[in-house]
Amino acid sequence: MITSEIVAIGKNSIVENDPLVILFGPEATNSLKDVALIQKFDQKAPKFNLKRGARIRIREHEYEITFCGKLVNANLSGVGHATLCFEPVPDTPLQSAIYLSPEKFPGFSVGDKITYIF
């Protein structure tokens, strides 16, 4: 289990009626910080092993991973990056994305915790 905290929310990171958010670690460039939620992990150099069936908790909301792209674990471990998609898995899913069920967007605030349970 790995936990992160949302430490910043980019001004263009949450778009109404768009069921996804982009996550990055604090070292993201300024242009990425505008379109991303910045998360800081509770441990140094976390090693992720997320896969279908694992869970993610955002505040009191718990989600099941329905698809985990092949780039997700390395990207999260390296630069804290993943795209969280609150929608059904499409025919051609993003390889840097985690698709979650239920497909209900939780909303985000600075200070929110994200817990990756695997």
Rank of each mutant, 00 (worst) to 15 (best):
29 T>M: 05
55 R>G: 03
35 V>T: 07
108 F>V: 05
109 S>R: 13
78 G>I: 04
73 N>D: 08
93 P>F: 12
73 N>L: 09
63 Y>P: 04
82 A>V: 02
101 S>H: 11
41 F>V: 03
65 I>D: 06
38 I>V: 14
68 C>I: 13
55 R>D: 03
90 P>L: 10
74 A>Q: 07
56 I>R: 07
71 L>V: 05
112 D>I: 05
82 A>Q: 03
73 N>C: 04
52 R>W: 13
110 V>W: 06
67 F>N: 04
103 E>T: 00
38 I>T: 06
28 A>S: 11
88 P>Q: 06
113 K>Y: 04
16 E>V: 01
19 P>T: 13
81 H>M: 08
15 V>E: 10
57 R>Q: 11
6 I>P: 04
69 G>T: 03
77 S>F: 02
82 A>Y: 01
6 I>D: 02
24 F>Q: 04
65 I>W: 12
62 E>I: 10
80 G>I: 02
71 L>C: 07
102 P>I: 10
50 L>F: 05
11 K>W: 00
52 R>Q: 15
75 N>G: 03
104 K>H: 05
105 F>Q: 01
70 K>D: 09
98 I>K: 02
101 S>W: 12
61 H>M: 14
25 G>C: 00
17 N>M: 11
48 F>K: 01
41 F>N: 07
13 S>D: 01
88 P>W: 11
10 G>I: 00
43 Q>D: 03
61 H>G: 00
39 Q>A: 08
98 I>P: 01
38 I>D: 06
85 C>R: 15
96 S>Y: 15
52 R>Y: 14
7 V>M: 03
103 E>K: 05
110 V>I: 15
33 K>C: 10
12 N>C: 09
33 K>V: 08
33 K>F: 04
32 L>S: 09
59 R>A: 10
54 A>K: 07
98 I>M: 06
53 G>L: 09
99 Y>A: 04
110 V>K: 12
98 I>R: 04
53 G>F: 13
117 I>T: 05
2 I>S: 05
29 T>R: 13
54 A>N: 15
5 E>S: 07
114 I>Q: 12
4 S>A: 15
84 L>P: 07
8 A>P: 09
35 V>E: 15
14 I>N: 13
96 S>M: 10
3 T>Q: 11
81 H>I: 00
7 V>R: 02
52 R>A: 14
113 K>Q: 11
92 T>Y: 14
44 K>G: 00
102 P>W: 10
27 E>T: 10
5 E>R: 15
62 E>C: 06
78 G>F: 12
116 Y>G: 03
104 K>S: 08
68 C>Y: 09
4 S>I: 05
36 A>N: 01
112 D>V: 03
47 K>W: 09
74 A>Y: 08
61 H>I: 06
33 K>L: 04
41 F>Y: 14
117 I>F: 09
55 R>N: 12
42 D>K: 03
73 N>V: 02
60 E>T: 08
116 Y>E: 04
74 A>T: 13
60 E>V: 03
58 I>Q: 02
22 I>V: 11
87 E>M: 14
18 D>M: 15
42 D>H: 01
54 A>T: 11
73 N>F: 13
63 Y>R: 02
38 I>N: 00
110 V>E: 01
22 I>Y: 01
49 N>Y: 04
45 A>M: 12
35 V>Q: 09
47 K>L: 13
58 I>S: 03
